[in-house]
Every structure is written in structure tokens, then in C-alpha cells.
Design a protein around this nucleic acid. Structure first.
Length: 582
RNA sequence: GCGCCCGUAGCUCAGCUGGAUAGAGUGUCGGCCUCCGAAGCCGAAUGUCGUGCGUUCAAAUCGCAUCGGGCGCACCA
């Protein structure tokens, strides 16, 4: 409907240009759903925009435009309002026709082909596999999964990808942490390093190792600790301490070091996968950082940079001239000790991503990574790819509050609330919904006490309740033996204010899906559903649906059936269930 | 010091590709179940849209400045 009106408007302005009333097409014609129903269904500001170049006052121009527009069967009337807006009132027939469209399309209502099958690589979460996901990761997971659903709904082909940082020093630290706990649990005296991973999940991993390998790795702990420099708390340097422990452990364990590591990473990764799957977040691809090194891609991409003279040596390290592409300083790719930096892997990873030939590459990152954008884009540009094609969405942190106090989270110290805990406390639906309710740039305060103790206040229940209520009405319909069929319904009987309001909302749905998807803003959909539910609840209290008057009954049932369908489709995109009863 | 994000009702936040009287939830106060689910509805009160200047017919929305909060500025990942 909006498209028709928009086309009509564009044609009209074209005509006026031909007539010399105005000189050029405005860059953007705005035709919006009105906020206030007294302003009609749609409003445009073209007259205001063009008044200057036409050199007449806006209201006069609006008059001219309306005259030129002529009559269309779907418009009941037009009005000039305020400083020169043109308001369009749709005929009741055209606005209620959405009911049949919705019911006939069912679960497919809202699906479109705006994306035209373009392929999208969407990377998100990508939390380091050093422990279970915590509530901070949950936000990225819920956000990414919902954006993915939205993009698919509007016709993009989306691959969800998780980048697994399974290489580098942190993996060594993880392995040593497991090893030391293993020794400890087999009775050895261990002074656990400050910098080790202290979470209880490490002990679970030790359990698996014992199952698989028994006590084959057991050695006297003095062999591990003798001669190692002091830890941080003991007045030494915690970084050197753990590095020496890593070197010693590798030495003592030989190939067994890798065995321990493999059990650890597998266990953690499986945990993460299950956790996400339970949360309704499914990744098609798990991309391993180690695979970049094993395949030689990390090495070869640096070679390429060397050939194209984008790198140079300084202070024994290899530097990438990212400043050539607008970064504030050059970045080290290979350290003076010959070890690749994390950035080196990322260069290879993004090169690899681009070479897979996606139309769009999107990264969802935590806000703490924003300083990283320039260098990654630089690396893309250095390989002669278009850095603009990489879209980076920064998701701000979720701060946790408990008892009115901010909860400090650290994987290392083990002092965090896991995503699993949260899901168990508040349920998947509430968690999914709550996470995307704030736009990604907004810092989020996640009040655990509120989420746990007052779950009924969560807006997700309000929406689900609307859905359940409608389901309940249709159970009644069935019990009473009423034969509901929207096809025969006389929708012109829907004359109540609350009915017109719901019709307006239903007409908005497709537009909401479109903007939510294209702007990567799931919260817009969440707010829409909240509004739709509110209008339904209001209607529910104002009007009975099952009445003596069969025609009115059919019309009203059609309206709420369509509402139910839109609620269902919208909730589905958000990854939230739509229960028939609660 | 530099960069990014945020500053809107008591609290948590929408609105921000400029548009018509600034909106929700929650909290406070007062009503509504012999009637399709009261996890609901109806009504009331509440605002220097951080501040200042500018652009514009029109600014919460755009620009500049400034104040406040968060985060980032590694040969860590």
C-alpha cells in the first residue's frame, strides 16, 4: 500500500517538474506512517521540502500536489495540515485488506526479498574458549542471532560464524591451569598462579582427563615449581611467572601437553556450543584460528604483505604500515621473539573471509574492540579489497548489577555469572528478549535481582500473554462450535477505534521488519510487538469477540487472528516462543 | 591527552536518514473481574530532551564547543 502511494507521489512530482512548477526531484521523499491517527495513515513533507525551490508557501504547494495526484481508489481523503504536511487517509477497505494478506501468508507474512539473495557472513560472539560463556557474551549472542533471523526474513542468505581463538598464549595458560589443578586433585601441593584460570569448570575438565588418561600425567609438583620466578602476589611478575610455568610444563609433559590442551579445548568448546544451541543460537561455521596457522594462511598472508611492501622491520619486530590506511599508529604483526600477534591471525582471517566471496561481511564486536577497527580495515585495503564492505557493529557492554552493586566479571578469576545460570534463572525467552530490547550502542544495565525476582515484569510476558489470550479465544470458538473463516468476513464492520488502531499497527509490520533488518536494530521489532500487544489487550478489554452477531464475530475474529499471526512471526524472529497458554 | 559510545519523567529506556502537543515500561495515586485468561484494562501526576552557540520554515534529532558517565588507546588475546 505504501509503495503504491509512494509511486503515485513520485509520478506526481515528476509531472510538476514537467510543468515547471518545481525544478528538481528532492533527494528523498519521505512518506511516513503517522504518529497520530488524526493525521491519517500516511503523511508526507514534500510540500515543505519543495516550497523553497518552487518559491511558494508550503500550503499552496501542497494544494497543487494534491490536485495533481488526482484520485486513487485506495485513498479515502487527503488533507493539508500543520505547516504544510499532506496527510493521506486510506480507505477502510485498503487498510483492512492486510488481514487477509496476513492470514493467507501465515508464517510467511513479513518475509520479503529486499536482500535479493545476497550472501552475508555474520560473525558474532567469538568469545575466547577459555571458559563458559558469561552474561556479557549473551548479549552478542542474542543480538547476532536476531539480526541473522531478520536478515534472512528479508531475503539475505546468512552464514553465522564463530571465530575460535584456539591458538596463542592464552591457550597455554589454559592448559597449564588444567595441568596444575590435575596435580592438585591428585594430591600434589600446588601454588596456583594468579594469572591462571581459576573457574570451577577447570576442575570438570580435570575430571575428563582423569577418565581418559588416569594418572599418567602425574608428577611431583616440585618438579614444576622449582626455580620458577615469583608470582605477582609474592612480589614477582605474574606474567613471567606463568610464562615460565608454561615453558616448564611443556618441557616436562612433552606431547602430553597437547593431549591436555585438546581435552580442555574440546570440553570448553562443546560446552559453548551446547549453551548457545540451548539459547537458540546456531552457528553454521566454527572457524578455528589454529587452522589459519596449520594451513599456512597466516604465514602466506604476511608474505603477501611483505611483497607489497606493507610491512617493515623495526626493533626486531615486523610492523604493518596500517597508518597508510588511516590507523593512528603502525601495528606489530610478528613480535621480536618470532611469535605472531593476534592481529596477524586476524589479517589472515579477514582475507580468508573476503576471498570466500560474500556480498556483505558483518562483524559484531564488543565495544572494547573499537580501537581495532582501523587496523582490520587497513589489512583489507592492503589486499585490495574494499574495506567498506566490512561492517562492524559494536555492542556495548552489559553491566551486571546485584543488590544495587555492579558485579565485576573476569573469566580468569572465575567471578562471573554464566549465560547458563542466567538462562536457568530467567528463562530463554526473557533472556533473549531482554538482551535485544536495548539498542546495541546503549550500555545495558542488567539487574540480576530484578530479572530473577520479578520476571513477571519483563515485557516478553506481556507479548506472550497477548498471544496466549488470542489462542484461548479460539479455543472458546471451537468449543462453541463456531465456524471461523476469515474469507467470508465482512471487514468493513471493524469500525471501533481500537480496531482501527490495530489495523494501523498490522499495516506497519512489514516496514518494521524491513528497517529492523536493514539497520540491524532488533529492538525496533521488540518495541513494535510490545505496542501491538498493548493495543490488543486494550481491545480485549473493550470489545467482546464472540457475539450474537455472526458477521461481526467473524470480522473481529479475523482481526485478532491476524494479530496472533503477526505476534507469532515477530516473536519467532526474536527467538522467543509463542505459547498457546501460559 | 586522543578516539568511540551514552546523557530524554523518580528509575530503566524508546524516539535521533530534522517535522505537527516529546513517548513507553516501572514506580506513586484512584478506579475495573456474576462477562472471551486481572501475567490484563481505564484514569491521574511527573520533563530546562546535560549545557551553550549555530544551521533551518522547523532541532531531542544535524554541526561546533563544553560538562558528566562508560570503554579503548600493547611486540595481550
Amino acid at each position: 500500500m505504501k509503495d503504491q502511494l509512494q509511486n503515485l507521489l513520485i509520478k506526481c512530482i515528476g509531472d510538476l517538474i514537467d510543468q515547471g512548477v518545481i525544478s528538481e526531484m528532492p533527494s528523498k521523499i519521505r512518506l511516513d506512517h503517522t504518529k497520530d491517527r488524526s493525521h491519517g495513515d500516511y503523511a508526507t513533507n514534500v510540500a515543505l521540502m519543495l516550497a523553497k525551490q518552487a518559491n511558494v508557501n508550503p500550503k499552496e504547494l501542497a494544494q497543487t500536489i494534491i490536485k495533481q495526484l488526482g484520485v486513487a481508489e485506495f485513498i479515502e481523503k487527503t488533507e493539508i495540515a500543520g505547516p504544510g504536511f499532506i496527510n493521506f487517509f486510506l480507505s477502510s477497505e485498503s487498510s483492512s485488506s492486510v488481514i487477509n494478506e496476513i492470514i493467507d501468508s501465515g508464517k510467511g507474512y513479513g518475509v520479503s526479498n529486499i536482500g535479493a539473495g545476497q550472501s552475508v557472513l555474520l560473525e558474532y560472539v567469538s568469545a575466547n574458549p577459555t571458559g563458559p560463556l558469561h552474561v556479557g557474551h549473551g548479549r552478542g549472542a542474542a543480538y547476532g542471532a536476531t539480526v541473522s533471523n531478520l536478515l534472512r526474513t528479508v531475503g539475505f542468505k546468512v552464514d553465522n560464524e564463530y571465530y575460535v581463538n584456539d591458538a596463542g598464549r592464552q591457550m597455554d595458560i589454559l592448559t597449564v591451569s588444567i595441568f596444575l589443578r590435575y596435580l592438585e586433585l591428585s594430591g600434589e601441593k600446588v601454588r596456583f598462579p594468579d594469572n591462571g584460570y581459576q573457574g570451577s569448570y577447570i576442575k570438570d575438565i580435570v575430571g575428563r582427563i582423569s577418565e581418559r588418561y588416569g594418572d599418567t600425567f602425574q608428577i611431583e609438583s616440585t618438579l614444576v615449581f622449582d626455580g620458577i620466578c615469583k608470582d605477582g602476589i609474592d612480589g614477582g611478575d605474574k606474567e613471567s611467572h606463568i610464562d615460565e610455568l608454561i615453558a616448564r610444563s611443556k618441557n616436562l609433559l612433552g606431547a602430553d601437553f597437547k593431549s591436555i590442551f585438546e581435552v580442555g579445548i574440546e570440553s570448553i568448546l562443546n560446552g559453548i556450543k551446547e549453551d548457545l544451541a540451548d539459547f537458540g543460537v546456531v552457528f553454521e561455521k566454527w572457524f578455528s584460528e589454529q587452522s589459519l596457522i596449520d594451513s599456512g594462511l597466516a604465514e602466506s598472508s604476511i608474505d603477501k604483505l611483505q611483497k607489497s611492501k606493507h610491512v617493515y622491520t623495526k626493533d626486531g619486530a615486523l610492523w604493518f604500515r596500517t597508518t597508510e590506511y588511516g590507523d593512528e599508529k603502525d601495528r606489530v604483526v610478528v613480535r621480536d621473539n618470532g611469535i605472531h600477534t593476534y592481529f596477524a591471525s586476524d589479517i589472515a582471517y579477514h582475507l580468508e573471509k573476503f576471498e570466500r566471496g560474500y556480498d556483505k561481511v558483518i562483524n559484531v564486536w564488543g565495544a572494547d574492540h573499537h580501537g581495532y577497527i582501523a587496523r582490520v580495515k587497513a589489512s583489507i585495503a592492503a589486499f585490495n579489497h574494499d574495506p567498506e564492505k566490512l561492517e562492524i557493529i559494536l555492542v556495548q557492554f552489559a553491566n551486571l548489577y546485584r543488590g544495587g552493586k555492579k558485579v565485576q566479571m573476569s573469566t580468569r578469576s572465575g567471578s562471573f555469572v554464566t549465560l547458563e545460570d542466567l538462562r536457568n534463572e530467567v528463562g530463554n525467552d526473557a533472556a533473549r528478549f531482554f538482551y535485544i530490547l536495548r539498542k546495541s550502542e546503549q550500555h545495558m544495565d542488567f539487574d540480576l535481582d530484578l530479572a530473577k525476582s520479578k520476571t513477571n515484569e519483563n515485557p516478553v510476558f506481556y507479548i506472550q500473554y497477548a498471544y496466549a489470550r488470542i489462542s484461548s479465544v479460539f479455543r472458546q470458538v471451537q468449543d462453541k462450535g463456531i465456524n471461523f473463516n476469515h474469507k467470508g468476513a465482512d471487514l468493513s464492520l471493524l469500525l471501533e477505534e481500537s480496531e482501527k488502531t490495530i489495523l494501523r499497527e498490522l499495516n506497519r509490520y512489514r516496514g518494521v521488519i524491513e528497517t529492523s533488518a536493514l539497520q540491524y536494530e532488533p529492538h525496533q521489532l521488540a518495541y513494535y510487538l510490545r505496542d501491538l500487544a498493548a493495543h490488543f489487550h486494550s481491545y480485549y478489554n473493550a470489545c467482546p469477540f464472540i457475539l450474537e452477531d455472526q458477521n461481526l464475530t467473524q470480522a473481529r475474529l479475523s482481526l485478532i487472528y491476524a494479530t496472533k499471526q503477526v505476534l507469532e512471526n515477530g516473536l519467532h524472529i526474536l527467538g522467543v516462543s509463542a505459547p498457546d497458554s501460559m
